[in-house]
Every structure is written in structure tokens, then in C-alpha cells.
């Protein structure tokens, strides 16, 4: 029996805008176990982004419960939530969100700066290890503007790995990338997943969801479908099938 990482029960989230109340999430039940690679799908306005914000401890639900790695987030203060994000979660964003004019290594170190238990030496070692895990050991001292989009996203993934989180939350992480680079990123995530990392990946592309183990589809604040992925794509094999990269 695998450990339950995320357990959401009857979760509701309302937004109040002047006189209108928007029900973004209308009673969500979701359980994610250790080692899963879950796609959260849905069109815009379906509630998937709100769901990700709640899962990422960036936003609090209006009602319902959310247990992350055995910790109920309902009663936590703003600072305690920050601590939870720092130790239990890793984020990967569509637009990478790397600090400009800051080396890859320093970008990856960032989360550890906010953990006073990590000493500078350990911080550096862990950042180097994370960059090695995403295959960018040789780009350690490059600035974001000296790297391609794919490389920048790898740095962002290394940053999400560096604190050894229980779950990595990715928000349209391939949205800004071309097909080949998307596959490369998916190959990296599949590799991390095969080594035991739990990943939740928000996307609106059904194709990308095929790389994962389970699909959860949102519409109008409800989960309308929840399936295991049957014909799962293997990113490495797909990459071999792509025409050789044109050298300019």
C-alpha cells in the first residue's frame, strides 16, 4: 500500500467579486499516492489553476479539507504555509520564473536560502546535485539569458527538486516549448517519476497528459473524469521518432 501524499475532501473555493460569487471549486475529492504522475486537465475556467494554487498552499480553500503528507493545511498561518511550501513542495512554472542575471546554480539554491537549517556548503552541494540530475552540470554558471527555453525549464525543475519535496507541482510546464523540447522535458519528468517522485502536472493539452499515469479532468469546478492512462507515451522513444534536429 503506497503512502497517500495528497488527500482532498469536499474542497470548495469561492471568490467574491463585489456582488457576484464565483464558485471556482464546487466540492473536490482527490487522492494522490506516492509515486504517481497525475495530469490535471481542463479548459480555462474549469478550476484547474485554482486547484493547483490550493494544492500548492498558495491559496486557502473556502471549505473542505486538504492533507499534504499527513499535515492538514486548514489551520496553518501564512508563515506556516510558507514553511510547508519550502520543505514539502516544488514548483515548475510555464514561464520558468528564473531570477534574471543570476547563475543557474544560484537560481537552484534559492529555495534553500529560506531554510535556515541548510548551511551554505550543503546548499551548494545539493544545488549541484539537482543540476546534475537534470543534466545541466556543465551550465552551472550560465545566466538564464545564455540558455535556451528547454535549458531554463530544466533549471526550474532542478530548483523544484533541490529541497527534496514530497510532490512537484508543474503548471503548464511545457506550454512555452516546442514539441522536441517538450518531449525532452517530459522525458526528464518521466525519469524523475520512475525514480519515485510524485508529480502533479496541470495542462490543457491531452497529448501531454498521455505521458502521465493518471488523468483528472476538471470542468466548472467539478472533477468530471478520472482515469488511469492506458496507452502511456514514453518520451524517450518519441524523441527517437522525431526527425533529426536541423542544424542551422
Amino acid at each position: 500500500m503506497k503512502k497517500t501524499i495528497i488527500e482532498v475532501k469536499d474542497l470548495k473555493k469561492d471568490f467574491y467579486m463585489e456582488e457576484i460569487t464565483v464558485h471556482a471549486l464546487r466540492g473536490i475529492n482527490l487522492e494522490i499516492k506516492e509515486g504517481e504522475f497525475v495530469a490535471i486537465m481542463g479548459t480555462s475556467g474549469s478550476g484547474k489553476s485554482t486547484m493547483l494554487n490550493v494544492l500548492g498552499c498558495l491559496d486557502k480553500p473556502t471549505s473542505g479539507s486538504y492533507m499534504l503528507d499527513g499535515i492538514s493545511m486548514g489551520e496553518l498561518s501564512r508563515n506556516e504555509l510558507a514553511g510547508l511550501r519550502n520543505r514539502k513542495l516544488g514548483f515548475v512554472f510555464q514561464s520558468y520564473n528564473l531570477l534574471p542575471r543570476t547563475t543557474a546554480l544560484e537560481n537552484v539554491e534559492l529555495p534553500l536560502f529560506y531554510n535556515s537549517e541548510v548551511k551554505p556548503k550543503e546548499r551548494r552541494e545539493r544545488a549541484i546535485a539537482a543540476l546534475e540530475a537534470v543534466g545541466l552540470a556543465d551550465r552551472m554558471h550560465h545566466m538564464p539569458n545564455q540558455m535556451s527555453g528547454g535549458q531554463q525549464q530544466r533549471v526550474a525543475i532542478a530548483r523544484s527538486l533541490v529541497n527534496d519535496p514530497v510532490v512537484i507541482l508543474a503548471d503548464e510546464a511545457t506550454g512555452n516549448l516546442d514539441t522536441r523540447t517538450s518531449y525532452e522535458i517530459m522525458a526528464l519528468l518521466q525519469d524523475l517519476n520512475s525514480k519515485g517522485k510524485t508529480i502533479v502536472f496541470v495542462t490543457h493539452e491531452p497529448d501531454i497528459a498521455k505521458f502521465m499515469t493518471r488523468e483528472v479532468v476538471f470542468r466548472d469546478g467539478h472533477i468530471i473524469r478520472e482515469d488511469m492512462v492506458t496507452e502511456r507515451y514514453n518520451a524517450l522513444e518519441l524523441l527517437k521518432g522525431l526527425p533529426a534536429e536541423e542544424l542551422v
Binding site: 498558495l58 508563515n79 510558507a82 520564473n97 529555495p111 529560506y114 530548483r159 529541497n163
Partner: peptide
């Protein structure tokens, strides 16, 4: 955005 990122990786308001 940098501030948003810092908050999301665990920076507290005080930090």
C-alpha cells in the same frame, strides 16, 4: 514576479 517566486518557494512576508 521575483517576489511571487520567492514567496512560492517558501519565503515568508517578513523575509
Amino acid at each position: 514576479r521575483e517576489i511571487g517566486l520567492r514567496l512560492s518557494v517558501g519565503g515568508r512576508a517578513h523575509d
